[in-house]
Nucleic acid binder design. Structure first.
Lengths: 212, 212
DNA sequence: CAGAATTGTGAACAGTGTTCACTGAATTAT
DNA sequence: ATAATTCAGTGAACACTGTTCACAATTCTG
């Protein structure tokens, strides 16, 4: 230790860690650049040596949230591959969302203003999507419309599934994300709260879905 | 005119209108109390004669968003009652969400920090939910688990449907909201973008769903 | 008409993100 | 080895934010 670039990396990591702590416990709106600097033992303007702006710092946190979720999902499905992989992935998604609600909402909640996804974030998002897309049953549900199939054929090829399979996956993931958003937003209070049973019910519906 | 209470109502309405304009065009994070005061031609501290805080002002906007959506849905289904009412409601939901994205995210996106739903908001939320719940097919999808059915029986009675029907509605609404959240968040870019066809596909799946 | 109530004022406070001239030490070039 | 350059970190400033408070002015009430 002792080199300048090492020092730079150190305080950068301290800034990131402080920012993660704040977001994880209080959410992104509570993220103050000055507070982060304070926690890292540095003056506010020093943060600009490492990040272009407060939003750029937040963008980094979004990236970490994506990769954290992707790794969580991948290890979950890896330890129980085969049948029921979709259910395993779905349950891992919910477990992660409940344990990291602010990070989950950072990804799937209201987009942060002026945020344009950088390349690294996109690939991390694809990692998350791939876990589900590659584990969707091939011939479940009604076939996609010709227009939809045409739209999805190319991207489906990238994931190694059929257009119908991708359409199926997108529809099902929408349901999972929607249920979690509603649960985290307290929209099930008065009906399905806690939402554990409803979640199981949704998974059962999904595994029974299809034309036959 | 000329009375004090009328004047109070006037500036209050001006403040609300200004706030609505900002949120509608730039989203809630761009809502500045000082800016709202400026637009209403009043000094910042005067806002506190009408609203407890900036968050209280935002809460009012959430309420307006709820009632606006509820009215939109109700008129949509009223003008085409009968068969296909669910599809009509769903399409009205999407149309409203796309035309009022910030308001939609105000309701279903990341919850604003420190927000506790007041009574008026809850009843408006119920209005929205009721449009869908009362139009769900009774015997579609797998039956709910005993635990889930027990949980949902009482609230289902309030809506005049069975517990299974409510479980069905909650699952389907989750899918609709999830698809819209993902669409508005740009998560379909690269796959189902624009998402019109995927939306239709989801609605078709929903109308075909069920055990028979 | 006198007194109470309350809408709006203007100044102040603590906080925010961001910019910029600067310092001092580590790196590189001579 | 010495001089030049790079650059992480500093501290002061700017324009902004939400919020509070003593005060003025006007309307309502007894």
């Amino acid at each position: 230790m002792g080199t300048r670039s090492e020092a730079k990396e150190n305080t950068r990591q301290q800034l990131l860690q402080a920012a993660k702590d704040v977001v994880s416990s209080q959410g992104p709106t509570a993220l103050s650049l000055r507070d982060v600097a304070r926690r890292a033992g540095v003056v506010p303007s020093a943060v600009y040596r490492h990040f272009e702006s407060r939003d750029a710092l937040l963008t980094q946190l979004i990236l970490y949230a994506y990769t954290g979720l992707a790794e969580h999902l991948e290890t979950a499905v890896a330890s129980s591959e085969g049948h029921g992989a979709w259910r395993t992935a779905a349950n891992a998604l919910r477990a992660w969302a409940l344990a990291n609600r602010h990070e989950f909402l950072l990804i799937y909640g209201t987009p942060v203003p002026g945020y344009r996804a950088p390349e690294a974030t996109i690939s991390a998002a694809v990692r998350v999507a791939a876990v589900f897309i590659s584990r969707t049953p091939q011939e479940a549900g009604p076939p996609a419309d010709p227009t939809l199939r045409k739209q999805l054929t190319a991207p489906a090829a990238d994931f190694g599934v059929s257009a119908d399979g991708l359409a199926h996956a997108l529809a099902e993931v929408s349901q999972l994300v929607g249920a979690l958003i509603l649960e985290l937003g307290g929209h099930f209070v008065g009906t399905a709260d806690p939402a554990d049973q409803l979640w199981d019910h949704i998974l059962t519906r999904q595994s029974l879905g299809g034309t036959g």
